[in-house]
Amino acid sequence: MQTAEPEVVATLYDSPEGQFGPTLFGGHLHWGYWDAETAGASFAAAADRLAEIMIERIRIGPGQRFVDLGCGVGQPAAKLARATGCQVDGITISGSQQRAATAMAEAEGLQDRLRFFHGSALEIPAEDASYDGGWFFESIFHMGHRAALLEAARVLKPGATLLLTDLPTLPTTSDEFRDFVQEHIHSVFVAKEDYPALMAEAGFELVEIEDISENVMPWLVPKLTEALEEHRGTLVEMFGEETEKMIENWIFLFEYMSENLGYMVVTARKK
């Protein structure tokens, strides 16, 4: 299967449905992390927690440079900059996301440490070995894993940490599902077992793969349903009489993904 052209992915996130995502997820554009202690957490709170988990795994500090590959509207990048004092460059294929992220950075007084670019993470506007760390935060499956990792390796310094979240296929993942997500959300997923070869080919040492499927996948549909109900008024304002169909589509997609994919955090080091 071939990955979609970047411009096609941009249409997904520039659409009204794509722009509604941060409203559901508390300013984030990724899923969340739940456990027994946080079972009552909203989707937004759990998304924030997952960003914190990612930040805990990054070795970066003041004066160092970090690249967010597929940065969305910039909320994780802002949390990282505040927590560590590093400078973050984010890149997104979505023009609406880049504008929203830039406005957020200015509103929060972080424009000196955050820059957001409209472009492809397969063609990063940076010289070789520019960054001390980077991540793909629920984004690499839109790009093609091999090409994305090779470009990340180009711009990262030797010894830099690369962190990513990904949704690995399962032994039970169906061909029908693969075709569906490629057509409708322009994504191609790979198996966890593919990662050692992918990382080695791109010039990374694979440090760890942490499977957190049980903290993500079973929670998706009930937490999404709660979030959709909480924001029903906004949905009606945006989609009018199409609201119920929109809700059905979101729930169907999350059900389908939770049945066919896992969730993992991958840590690697540039050789």
Rank of each mutant, 00 (worst) to 15 (best):
L235V: 04
H30L: 05
T38M: 05
Q98K: 14
W219R: 03
A197E: 14
I251G: 09
T225W: 07
G133P: 00
W31G: 03
I124G: 05
A191I: 05
R65G: 03
I212A: 05
T84V: 02
E52H: 07
H145A: 03
V73C: 06
M217E: 10
V221Y: 11
W250K: 00
T102P: 04
L162F: 04
W219M: 05
M1T: 09
Q2A: 07
S174G: 10
L198N: 13
A47H: 13
G159R: 04
S174D: 01
I247K: 03
L50G: 01
M54E: 11
Q97R: 11
P22V: 12
V8H: 08
V190K: 15
L253V: 04
I91Y: 02
L150F: 10
L164R: 12
R59N: 08
E241H: 06
H145P: 02
A83E: 14
P6I: 06
V216M: 07
G40N: 06
D166Q: 13
S120A: 06
N260T: 09
Q2Y: 00
G203A: 06
V188K: 14
A153F: 05
G70A: 11
R232T: 00
K79G: 03
F254N: 11
F43M: 10
A78W: 14
M54Y: 11
E127F: 10
A44W: 13
I91R: 14
M246A: 07
R99Q: 15
T225G: 07
F117E: 15
K192D: 05
G26P: 04
I140L: 04
H118K: 13
A10M: 09
F43H: 06
G233C: 05
P171Y: 01
S94R: 09
E208D: 14
V8D: 11
F141S: 02
L170G: 11
M54G: 06
G119Y: 02
